Amino acid sequence: MLFKLTGSSGAGKTTLAFAAVDRLDGIVVHEFDEVGVPDPPIPPHWRNRMTELWVRRALEYQARGIDVLLSGNSPLGEVLAAPSAPLLDGIAVCLIDVADEARRDRLAARDSGRWDQDAIDAFCGWAAWHRGHARDPQFRPDVIIDGSWPEMAWHRWTAWTAEDPRWRTSLIDTTGQPLAKSIDHVERWVTEQREAYRSGRLALARGWTDETPLLAHHDA
């Protein structure tokens, strides 16, 4: 399976991913940007193509019986549209979020002087979009679709509604939470999604592109 921690910068995705994976068996952790990030301006399609790269790497691990926990900015819709996504045994996405004030404080502490006010505002705006996207596939899909890589298969989900059980992004809000508690939440999320897969309740198990979803799957 591919487990994806998504969200805007400053929420704690990578810290949580690397801490939680130490408590889990049969899973490896990677950070989306570890393959390198081009200097601004970021080339068009870069995140789309890198999402596909990570899906393919997850498939390599899958062939060896190993899951992947990946932290990065790609939201659910981008993962599902990656060309090779239907080949994964299962997909689970979790939004790691934090209140804007805490995000600003964390970015200032972590990257002192790196970001100006406009950049930090942009991170907060990206976080707000992530929240809307997690709730509803019809929330501003143009943000990720317009000008995207031609290979992306957006049609897989653009007709879905928020009630479709396959449109499932879990949420972990780290605002005011001790790090240890947030790590517990990530560990529990991975464990629950694995159980949903084993019991046949995971809505984004292989075949999600060609099945009519059952509402009973929604609790997965």
Rank of each mutant, 00 (worst) to 15 (best):
P41M: 10
P75C: 09
Q117T: 13
P86R: 14
G132T: 13
R110P: 10
I96K: 02
F18S: 11
A134Y: 09
A17K: 12
Q117A: 13
Y61S: 11
T14N: 06
N73T: 03
L53V: 05
A82S: 13
R106N: 04
L70D: 02
L88R: 08
V55L: 05
A127L: 03
H130Q: 14
S9H: 10
H30I: 09
G12F: 09
N48A: 03
N48I: 00
Q138W: 04
L24E: 02
V98R: 05
W46N: 13
G77S: 13
A82P: 11
G12K: 12
A122P: 08
R135E: 15
P41N: 11
A109E: 12
L70P: 07
L69P: 01
G12R: 11
I27Y: 05
G26T: 11
D136C: 13
A128P: 15
D111P: 02
E78T: 14
D97F: 01
D39L: 13
H30M: 11
R110H: 11
L53K: 06
V29M: 00
G36H: 06
A63V: 01
R103L: 04
L70N: 01
R106Q: 06
A108E: 15
G132S: 12
D25Y: 03
I120S: 02
L76W: 07
G132H: 09
C124F: 05
L80A: 08
E60S: 05
L70K: 01
G26Y: 11
L24Q: 08
P38L: 08
P75D: 02
I96Q: 01
V79K: 13
Y61Q: 05
T14R: 06
G10A: 05
A63K: 12
V79A: 02
L95V: 06
V68Q: 00
D67P: 05
S84T: 13
A102Q: 15
W115S: 10
F123A: 10
G132M: 10
R57K: 03
D105L: 15
D25K: 15
A63W: 03
W54V: 04
S71P: 05
D105Q: 15
D100H: 15
A63Q: 12
D136Y: 08
A20S: 15
R110Y: 07
G72Y: 07
H130P: 09
R57L: 00
I91M: 09
F18M: 13
L70Q: 01
R57C: 03
D100Y: 04
S9M: 10
P40K: 11
T51W: 00
I42G: 10
A85R: 08
E78P: 07
P75M: 04
S112P: 14
D33Y: 07
A127V: 01
A128N: 14
I96D: 01
H45P: 03
V93Q: 06
D39W: 03
S74C: 06
A58N: 03
D121T: 10
H45Y: 04
D22M: 15
I91C: 09
L95S: 05
H130M: 11
V35Q: 09
I66Y: 00
S8K: 08
L16T: 02
L70C: 00
V55D: 01
